[in-house]
């Protein structure tokens, strides 16, 4: 799998006001020169911000605010709502979707993959399919950390700059 993103990749976080997403957003913004997190989506939370990232009700609003197409989305919504979130991203022109959520029913994942294929150009990396897609942790890490090559030894939210002792 080639490298799909770099430091110029713009992305949103769907479910950005959730506990995991708030941490993830902070990690993304802190990393390297800072990731291009151009917005977040949580229905009903329009007008808030998460570490300075504006929150919208819909992906459409996020795209409108950004003023041009958004490259990617990190989806962190609960399993029952993941399919709709991914559909929303794909139908709003997002080309790369990273799904952090676990335990999504297979049928939903199959629908996402098929819609992505129908809207040629979009691709997604669901956690549930670690065997056929790169693992979510790797993808989430690479998406969350533009500029870091997604190699097994380097990819990861804590990056190489952190102290380590073994």
């Amino acid at each position: 799998m080639s490298i799909l993103i770099d430091e110029t990749t713009t992305f949103i976080v769907q479910g950005i006001t959730g506990r995991e997403a708030v941490n993830l957003t902070r990690e993304c913004l802190d990393y390297g020169r800072g990731a291009q997190v151009v917005g977040g989506v949580t229905p009903g939370r329009k007008g808030r911000d998460v570490h300075g990232v504006p929150v919208f009700d819909t992906v459409d609003q996020a795209v409108a605010h950004h003023g041009r197409p958004i490259d990617g989305s990190v989806v962190t919504v609960p399993p029952a709502f993941t399919k709709d979130a991914v559909f929303e991203a794909i139908e709003n022109g997002v080309k790369l979707v990273v799904i952090v959520t676990e335990r999504i029913p297979r049928r939903d994942v199959a629908e996402m993959v098929e819609l992505a294929a129908l809207r040629a150009g979009a691709s997604s990396a669901p956690t549930a399919w670690a065997s056929s897609f790169p693992t979510s942790s790797r993808w989430a890490a690479s998406a969350a950390r533009p500029g870091t090559p997604p190699s097994p030894t380097r990819a990861g939210p804590s990056g190489s700059s952190r102290a380590r002792a073994a």
Binding site: A140, P152, A155
Partner: peptide, 8 residues
């Protein structure tokens, strides 16, 4: 393996 959202 390397974790991204699970906290060490």
């Amino acid at each position: 393996s390397i974790v991204s959202n699970t906290r060490v």
